[in-house]
Design a protein around this nucleic acid. Structure first.
Lengths: 210, 210
DNA sequence: ACTAGATGTAAACGTTTGCTGACTTGGCCA
DNA sequence: TGGCCAAGTCAGCAAACGTTTACATCTAGT
């Protein structure tokens, strides 16, 4: 009894399983979300089955419909989660540390890493609502990246600056996807140290520090 | 047999239908391949059904199995075709014109354009044989790009050079995919002229001209 | 302790999937 | 002209898909 101080927040894929309650709706929702994010990011929407997700989460298939209405509803929730996490990890990066931050997050092999989020954002379900979420996340990310490099909305040459920021974002996505989806050496086996130099050159060339 | 002179080459999605013979195995194969390349590139492997491909080609479903053994066989043929076309369009580009060439091909909205080929190369069927083809195409492309910028195999610092070429390739793929799959302005609406400047900066930064 | 609602389970639904086998039809050559 | 094989059609298979329904079990409030 006693309310529930010991409820494991189940914070993302990281934290311990920490013996969750035998019946915990919020925990189950989170388990499904985490499993789905991994599957969708790695295999894509259509190639992922709801039974695989449920099995990964150790949960019954029917609960996907219960908690997320449908497979598409679950996918949209994944996109929103990726967007939130992307905003959280990239916020407040000093302008001159942007390439390092990107390199660090891209090199992170973890399932919750930037690579995984970026891969997920490229996946499509064919659903219009999901596409809109995807677009919004990418718009926000590119504006954030541009802002970190000195862009201010409404400035003259604003479009050019934003275009370059989006190209830098595209480059990051390309690297992340190529690293994770195909064994392409030396890119796939490159470490954070290997990546940071070229990435700095790339970002600096597109968005000059000053 | 003597080849077959009157066979309409059916060169990709462009050319005329040009009243093909009512029964023409080679022509039918090509129709299927063209339709499949478009579908696979745009929707991915799992989201594409063989019936859709057959309908697009105006051909009976059973002929996919006849001419390409299976859906996966057709997909592998698409990858090989994309690899051939990629090699054909990028070969013999002067070193200092590489960014322009990339920009031109990426901006090309045609279904047979570089964008489509690059998108296709990112698609996965989960099949090991297809993955190997994909990998081989990308390896060759990155080495070709590196070579165009002065890299010679076995040189000191060779790995670094190749890594940078692969990152440039990844950037190109990222731009192509982002442009085609999501309506992300200003990137999506950028013209060849808009792209060539930033792309030159990007490529030059990764692979210095000298 | 009892019960009502929340949570989880099991099985099956109807549809769509890739693929196949038996068939018809058309074009080519003797 | 007639026959024969390549080329194309047709209907349907078994498996897998997302989803739903009916039922079992746990938890919380009284």
């Amino acid at each position: 009894m006693t309310a529930k101080p010991p409820v494991p927040p189940n914070s993302d894929t990281a934290g311990e399983p920490a013996q969750r309650r035998r019946r915990d709706a919020a925990g189950t929702r989170q388990l499904l979300l985490d499993a789905a994010r991994q599957r969708f990011a790695r295999d894509g929407y259509a190639a992922t089955t709801v039974r695989e997700i449920a099995d990964d989460a150790g949960v019954n298939v029917a609960l996907i419909s219960r908690y997320y209405t449908s497979k598409e509803g679950l996918f949209e929730a994944c996109l929103r989660a990726a967007g939130d996490e992307l905003r959280r990890t990239t916020v407040q990066t000093p302008a001159d540390r942007v390439p390092e931050a990107i390199a660090r997050h891209i090199a992170d092999p973890g399932a919750a890493g930037l690579s995984s989020q970026l891969s997920l954002l490229l996946r499509s379900s064919g659903d219009a609502a999901a596409d809109e979420i995807r677009r919004a996340v990418l718009v926000r990310s590119s504006e954030q990246l541009a802002a970190a490099r000195g862009w201010r909305p409404g400035e003259p040459g604003s479009e050019q600056f934003l275009l370059r920021a989006q190209m830098a974002l595209a480059a990051g996505i390309g690297v992340a996807v190529l690293r994770s989806s195909i064994q392409l050496d030396p890119l796939s086996s490159a470490t954070e140290q290997d990546l940071v130099g070229p990435l700095r050159d790339l970002v600096d060339a597109l968005l000059p520090p000053h």
